[in-house]
Simulated scan of single mutants.
Amino acid sequence: MADTALTQSTQLLMDYIKSQIPAITSDQHAETLAAQIIAGLPRLFAESPEIFSIALSMARAKQTTTQLMISRKFNDLMNQIDVQMQRLQWTQAQGREHLEKFYGVRSRYSLSLDQLDNFLLYLQLTDSSAPNP
């Protein structure tokens, strides 16, 4: 389990290195640099333990920001879908029927953001109050 986590972390670090340092184009070079960085971490944290705390805080802040952005996008899509369903005069039952037919779910809350976006687009392009023409 720990080996899998280390492998995944190393791969993420390699991908980051390749994306941030244009001169590094091969996996071998990225892996070498990632190994050097990982090998130096214990000394770095021993000499400057506050770096770990700062890095952890930054990672948590980024995660919180990402979650907030997803939440806002989700709420925005749900509100826009509500507006379009009202425009079409769809009932909840009609919406559920469409979701079951095209997505295999009974609730919008079971859809991904991409699926919600697709459902909204479908509603925006629909002129009929009858679902699933």
Rank of each mutant, 00 (worst) to 15 (best):
M1S: 01
D3S: 12
D3E: 13
T4M: 13
T4V: 14
A5H: 07
A5K: 10
Q8F: 02
Q8W: 02
S9V: 04
S9W: 03
S9G: 06
T10D: 02
Q11C: 05
Q11A: 10
M14F: 05
D15T: 05
D15G: 00
Y16C: 01
S19T: 07
S19F: 03
Q20F: 00
A23Y: 00
A23R: 05
I24W: 03
T25M: 03
S26V: 00
S26H: 03
H29T: 04
A30Q: 02
E31H: 01
E31F: 00
E31R: 06
E31M: 01
L33F: 11
I37N: 01
A39D: 12
A39F: 07
A39L: 08
L41H: 01
L41K: 02
P42Y: 08
R43K: 14
F45T: 09
F45P: 03
F45V: 14
A46M: 06
E47T: 08
E47I: 04
S48M: 04
I51D: 05
I51S: 04
I51R: 04
F52M: 02
S53A: 11
A55V: 10
M58H: 12
A59P: 00
A61D: 13
K62I: 12
K62M: 10
K62W: 09
Q63A: 09
T64Q: 07
T66A: 10
T66F: 10
L68W: 10
L68S: 11
M69D: 14
S71C: 07
F74G: 02
F74N: 11
N75F: 12
D76I: 04
D76E: 12
D76H: 07
D76Q: 08
L77S: 04
M78E: 14
M78S: 13
N79C: 07
Q80A: 12
Q80L: 12
Q80W: 09
I81G: 02
V83D: 15
Q86H: 14
Q86A: 10
R87I: 07
R87Q: 11
Q89Y: 09
Q92S: 11
G95I: 04
R96K: 15
G104D: 08
R106A: 10
R106W: 03
R108S: 10
R108W: 06
Y109C: 05
S110W: 13
S110K: 13
L111P: 01
L111G: 04
S112Y: 12
D114M: 07
Q115A: 12
L116M: 15
F119Y: 15
L120T: 09
L120F: 14
Y122I: 04
Q124R: 09
L125Y: 10
L125F: 10
T126W: 06
S128Q: 13
S128E: 13
S128D: 14
S129Q: 10
A130W: 07
N132K: 03
P133I: 05
P133D: 09
P133W: 10
P133A: 06
